[in-house]
């Protein structure tokens, strides 16, 4: 009797788990292994042949490939640095202001500032393309209003500015996420702590730097890793604004566009699933490294701040 109910229970567990595990395994885990496998094979005379690490050797050894790879990685790193230096501090600053006690219209600010985050890359990309277009002239007009017209350049078309411009547009789009997460973290700080600080004369800006900021460090850690994963996986905005060729002259190339172009091919070069898989594996290792550093170095050290 006992054994019977136990075995019955086991069936429930399997049935509850099965659909999720099946879909997840078939479309998330197996494709990752499939991609790993593809990266170790090459197409020779209509046949997939095992070549070991040859594709990785090509990626790093062949100047045609390695140049593109390092350019994509360098650009992607710059893309990430801009998000860390601009998006996250702005997000934290807005959250800090929103948490000023008795501030009115909080809900309005929060809702409005989050709007760009819900728009698709396509909308954001085209909207900014129009606004920055020298043809339409909204950007030069606005600069003229503040007497800075000479600063205007067709930023998206210049190699030296295009990547930074796109990164800043992406920052504009995603500021809402650090804002929300930090705002939530600031709300969760117990009042007693802040009051105790006030007794000791720590208020205003000082309270933010000395009390709140250390307490929200774990959330800043989460935001950093989310930014890292999101940035090294970025593709859509560059594709929408500059196309699969990452114009001008590949200057806006990130890992995502490099993968897409290699996989699908472009004008002069046919698509290559094996090299595409190789690049995807490199992205996997980069993201994994970031996640492991976060989990083992950052998160474990930050535990002590939690209450």
């Amino acid at each position: 009797m006992r054994a019977e109910t136990r075995s019955k229970r086991r069936w429930h567990i399997a049935i509850f788990l099965a659909p999720a595990v099946l879909v997840y395994t078939a479309l998330m885990i197996l494709p990752l292994f499939g991609t790993l496998k593809l990266s170790l094979y090459q197409q020779v005379d209509q046949q997939q042949v095992f070549v070991g690490l040859d594709n990785f050797r090509t990626l790093f050894g062949d100047p045609n490939w390695s140049e593109s790879f390092w350019r994509a990685l360098k650009n992607n790193t710059w893309f990430f640095i801009i998000h860390m230096l601009v998006q996250n501090p702005i997000g934290i600053a807005i959250a800090a202001m929103l948490s000023v006690p008795a501030l009115r219209f909080k809900g309005f600010y929060r809702t409005a500032i989050f709007i760009p985050t819900i728009l698709s890359f396509v909308i954001v990309g085209f909207a900014w393309k129009l606004i920055l277009s020298p043809l339409w002239g909204i950007a030069p007009d606005l600069l003229k209003m503040v007497g800075l017209k000479h600063l205007f350049h067709p930023w998206l078309g210049k190699e030296e500015y295009a990547l930074t411009t796109i990164a800043l547009i992406s920052v504009w789009q995603f500021v809402g996420i650090p804002m929300m997460l930090i705002y939530a973290a600031l709300l969760s700080i117990p009042d007693e702590i802040l009051e105790a600080g006030e007794m000791d004369g720590i208020t205003g800006m000082k309270a933010f730097w000395k009390i709140k900021l250390p307490l929200i460090l774990p959330s800043i850690g989460i935001i950093s890793i989310l930014t890292f994963v999101g940035n090294f996986n970025a593709f859509d905005l560059v594709y929408t604004m500059e196309g699969a060729m990452a114009a001008p002259n590949y200057s806006t190339e990130v890992m995502g566009t490099f993968l897409f172009r290699t996989f699908f091919g472009h004008q002069t070069q046919p698509g290559d699933p094996n090299m595409g898989a190789t690049i995807a594996m490199m992205m996997f290792f980069i993201i994994l490294t970031g996640v492991v550093i976060y989990l083992f170095l950052i998160q474990t050290r930050m535990r002590r701040y939690q209450f």
């Binding site: 996989f263 699933p273 994994l288």
Partner: peptide, 30 residues
């Protein structure tokens, strides 16, 4: 409570951090 509960939880959590896009090449083949 069953054997492998924690392991199953961890297995299912991998996808929180690893973007599904990285498997695109194999997903398309599938």
């Amino acid at each position: 409570r069953f054997k492998g509960n924690t392991l199953m939880g961890l297995y299912l959590a991998i996808g929180i951090m690893i973007p599904i896009r990285l498997g695109t090449v194999a997903i398309l083949q599938f």
